[in-house]
Nucleic acid binder design. Structure first.
Lengths: 104, 104
DNA sequence: TCAATAAGTCAGAAAAAGATGACCAACAAT
DNA sequence: ATTGTTGGTCATCTTTTTCTGACTTATTGA
């Protein structure tokens, strides 16, 4: 027997907020792009013709807010904004590697 | 520059099917229950009053199909069906532990 | 000042995931 | 054969995610 009624068990999962950021649509793909170095919004649009602006925009914001991506505005010629993986982002990306080691 | 137009990059993520199974609603909680040993459907219903049958049923089916849970029918007194973590399930559960080591 | 480019936002539609309550099947004891 | 218990399914509704296409802002070179 695993439970007696006098002790409430804790079912919270400390990783759940991060799960949202790694499991959403386009997020694994964005991680793959980010792994190659800094990238721009327009680059994502070219790489993922099946994605729409809104989804990518929301994904980038989520990831930025989670501290996974850094955003840099480089006010040059036409207007550049660069995203890049933070150290935390590198850690989080390890989740995909971890998962891919599990047998089918 | 990370891309030239002649080489198409692979953006598939081998872990994506498993992501669905670990990130869905109630799934982390079900893993926690499963970590304590074999459990039954009715036990989940008691532990998670906020969950509904259908959601739990679908979650269990997903996890079984992914090879994460084993299902055993023990045709005793009233009819018992037991779920328990497979070895693969134990591996997959490691994802939560991995994620929880990442700093906020 | 006007146009071009990058990087978005916004309102609304469609699709997917989750919730609800009624119903069903297997089994065993009566 | 009937009833009670466990373990679900089914049709339907609601909520959340994702998609679509039009519109906006910032910058700068002509």
């Amino acid at each position: 027997m695993t439970n007696n009624s006098s002790i409430a068990k804790d079912y919270t999962c400390p990783g759940e907020p991060l799960l949202r950021v790694i499991a959403g649509k386009w997020k694994p793909q964005i991680f793959k792009v980010a792994a190659d170095g800094p990238f721009r919004f327009s680059h994502l649009m070219k790489e993922f013709p099946g994605a729409n602006k809104q989804s990518l925009s929301v994904a980038l914001r989520d990831m930025e807010e989670a501290g996974i991506l850094f955003k840099t505005t480089i006010s040059e010629k036409p207007l550049h904004i660069e995203y890049q993986l933070s150290p935390k982002g590198v850690d989080v990306m390890g989740v995909y590697k971890y998962i891919s080691t599990i047998q089918k």
